[in-house]
Amino acid sequence: MTQALSNRPALTRAQLAVEVGVRILTVPLLGLFVAMTVHQYVMDTSRVTLLVFAFAEVLTVGLAVFARVPRERDWRPLSLGATLCATFYFLAFQITPGIRLVPEALAAALQVVGVLVQIYAKWSLRRSFGLLPANRGVIINGPYRLVRHPMYLGYLITDIGFLAANFGVRNLLVVIAQWTLQVVRIVKEEQLLSNDITYREYMGRVRYRLVHGLF
């Protein structure tokens, strides 16, 4: 069930500039990443995880460009910085061949599971998602009945799949940094959403944010 988004406050000029700037920035950055991953794939067509990872980022970042403007958003520098770094982290990955800890097919299958989780979560949200922490309406159906942030769970599974076939110190550090920022992002998002009584009731019903028994 989605709470009606009425009486949406107007953005200030500075907020509008950030809103437009972030969305415009995604296009060349995502295009650059896709071009680099496709180039690496052409050099070694056995590296299917590159294509799956590129598709996952297009799905994540590309669709966020068309998300509706929320009625309430966290504009604080920490939230903004954590969100931008956690969103565009893929540019820091080393996409040249690394160490394959598991067979490429197994890693790609794990990535596909992560992408399917993301798609299910985004289908449940419709256009109620975006890059910055915001209240776009409280969604409590679909995968949101199991954990409070299934989309992030999909991201995590996809990242693990990519790392398993493209392991290296740099990529490991990127994943650790990325998920430190994602935890900050989740916490900040919930601080904002908890202003909504519907979300507070939802938190009482669904205990875990990401992984049952852990977080």
Score class of each variant (00 low, 15 high):
Ala165Leu: 03
Gln111Cys: 12
Asp159Tyr: 12
Asn141Gly: 14
Asn141Ser: 15
Trp123Leu: 13
Leu181Lys: 08
Leu125Pro: 07
Asn135Leu: 09
Leu106Val: 13
Ile139Met: 11
Leu172Val: 02
Thr158Arg: 06
Thr158Ile: 11
Arg127Ser: 14
Val113Thr: 04
Met151Asp: 00
Gln118Glu: 03
Gln178Leu: 15
Arg148Phe: 15
Asn166Tyr: 07
Leu172Thr: 01
Arg185Gln: 11
Ala108Ser: 14
Phe129Leu: 02
Thr158Pro: 08
Arg145Ile: 04
Asn166His: 05
Gln111Tyr: 09
Leu172Asp: 01
Ile160His: 03
Gly114Ser: 08
His149Val: 01
Gln111Thr: 09
Gln178Pro: 06
Leu181Thr: 11
Leu163Ala: 07
Ser128His: 12
Val184Arg: 07
Ile140Thr: 15
Asn166Ile: 01
Ile139Ser: 08
Arg170Val: 06
Ser128Leu: 09
Val184Phe: 12
Leu131Ser: 11
Leu125Ser: 07
Val117Ala: 12
Gln178Cys: 11
Leu132Met: 14
Val147Glu: 08
Val175Phe: 01
Asn135His: 12
Phe162Cys: 00
Leu132Tyr: 12
Gly161Ile: 01
Leu132Asp: 06
Gln178Tyr: 09
Ile176Met: 11
Asp159Thr: 14
Arg170Glu: 02
Val112Asp: 08
Thr180Phe: 13
Arg127Cys: 10
Arg170Ile: 04
Asn141Glu: 15
Gly137Tyr: 15
Arg148Pro: 15
Leu131Glu: 10
Arg170Asn: 07
Ile119Tyr: 09
Val147Trp: 13
Leu106Arg: 02
Leu110Arg: 00
Leu116Arg: 03
Val117Arg: 15
Ala109Lys: 00
Gly137Cys: 14
Trp123Pro: 06
Ala109Glu: 07
Leu173Ser: 06
Met151Gln: 13
Met151Val: 06
Arg148Glu: 15
Ala121Lys: 13
Ser124Arg: 04
Leu110Ile: 15
Ala165Glu: 03
Ala109Ser: 05
Gly161Arg: 00
Ile139Glu: 05
Arg136His: 08
Leu116Cys: 15
Pro150Val: 07
Gln182Phe: 13
Pro150Ile: 06
Ile139Trp: 09
Val138Phe: 14
Arg127Pro: 07
Ile160Asp: 02
Val112Cys: 07
